[in-house]
């Protein structure tokens, strides 16, 4: 059985006879609801159940919490903790063969397929000329900050806060970046935020987030559709103007804003990108980031624990962005 999804510039087809595997792959791909015009690169995810489990590879290409990946000139080979594995076929890495242990299929513990899908997508996006960036971005009046922080660093909450004051968002943690003749360009991949249930304390209109499906087994965050609560606040693309380095501190009241040193802009953005240990793949990522930061300004913000209780907490940041 075959089923197709769009994920940014990719058209992804699932081929599997296993209903639960198909459902998990489809659920993962369905998150990418950003609107793209073609042309699309085709990617095939072909999955089957197998009797045995794969042994974890050493992760020389990429090491993730639940997945290790090796690569040779002709093949990428990923393995996950549950014994699933995935191999690419062809130089363009557009066909991926996934094998899931029958025991895992029977148990329906298929979360690690998300990691394999993420690997196939990031490879496809890079092949299509885009760099995946784990950051938030907003746009208003020609100003577009890329908000950089680690997981749990507050990207989603500040994005929601800015959306409430009239900004539109390209996403709270998944963006694609490239550079063309006009400079750096960002594209949105999905319009779902990952919000912590506590967000309701500051933004009551989000409602009881515990009623929504969880984002992952890693966090308490919930998948939250932005435009359901804040209509017409998503943007498909923008030209970035700023890099905003963000961290949280219990010692800060409100949101403290300062200039980010020019030399810090490149590492700040680079730290938001998963870079495979493969020279041929790392080089274009570095080159894209280097070209992008040439035109970007930097801001450093420190967000206090309860900053969003103050309805005016964003004004200094907004003034700094507009200067």
């Amino acid at each position: 059985m075959s089923e197709a999804f769009h994920a940014g510039p990719l058209r992804v087809r699932i081929e599997t006879a296993e209903p639960s595997v198909r459902e998990k792959l489809a659920e993962t791909l369905a998150l990418y609801d950003g609107t793209w015009e073609g042309p699309f690169d085709d990617v095939v995810l072909e999955a089957r159940a197998v009797p045995g489990s794969a042994t974890m590879v050493d992760g020389a290409y990429l090491r993730c919490a639940r997945m290790s990946v090796n690569a040779t000139a002709g093949e990428v080979h990923a393995t996950t903790r549950c014994g699933a594995q995935m191999r690419s076929r062809g130089e363009q890495r557009q066909h991926w063969a996934i094998e899931v242990p029958e025991t895992v299929v029977a148990s329906a513990q298929l979360e690690e397929l998300e990691d394999l899908v993420g690997l196939a997508l990031t490879a496809g996006w890079r092949y299509a000329g885009w760099v995946p960036v784990h950051a938030a971005a907003l746009v208003r009046g020609g100003i577009c900050p890329i908000v950089c922080a680690g997981s749990g660093g507050g990207k989603s909450t500040i994005t929601a806060a800015l959306v409430r004051t009239g900004w539109r968002t390209l996403g709270d943690d998944k963006l694609l970046l490239r550079c063309d003749a006009q400079g750096p360009e960002l594209r949105a991949l999905l319009h779902t935020f990952n919000l912590h249930p506590r967000t309701r304390e500051w933004f009551p209109e989000v409602g009881d987030l515990t009623l929504l499906p969880p984002y992952s087994s890693w966090t308490e965050k919930r998948k939250f559709r932005v435009d359901r609560t804040w209509p017409k606040t998503t943007a498909p693309h923008a030209r970035p103007t700023h890099v905003v380095r963000m961290r949280r501190s219990s010692a800060t009241r409100g949101i403290a804003v300062s200039e980010l040193a020019r030399a810090e802009i490149f590492p700040t953005l680079l730290k938001q990108i998963a870079i495979p240990s493969d020279r041929a793949e790392a080089a274009p990522i570095l080159s894209t980031v280097a070209r992008a930061v040439g035109s970007l300004r930097g801001l450093d913000i420190v967000v206090g624990d309860d900053a969003y209780r103050d309805g005016d907490c964003l004004s200094e940041l907004e003034r700094a962005l507009e200067r």
């Binding site: 990429l62 090491r63 993730c64 919490a65 639940r66 997945m67 990946v69 998300e114 990691d115 993420g118 690997l119 997508l121 990031t122 490879a123 995946p132 784990h134 680690g150 997981s151 749990g152 943690d173 998944k174 087994s217 890693w218 966090t219 590492p267 680079l270 730290k271 938001q272 990108i273 998963a274 870079i275």
Partner: peptide
Amino acid sequence: RQPEPLQRVLVSAFDPSIPLAE
């Protein structure tokens, strides 16, 4: 040399953050 290296073990192929305990 930058004071801190990039993470060697990541959350995922998209997220370069330090993995948190499940």
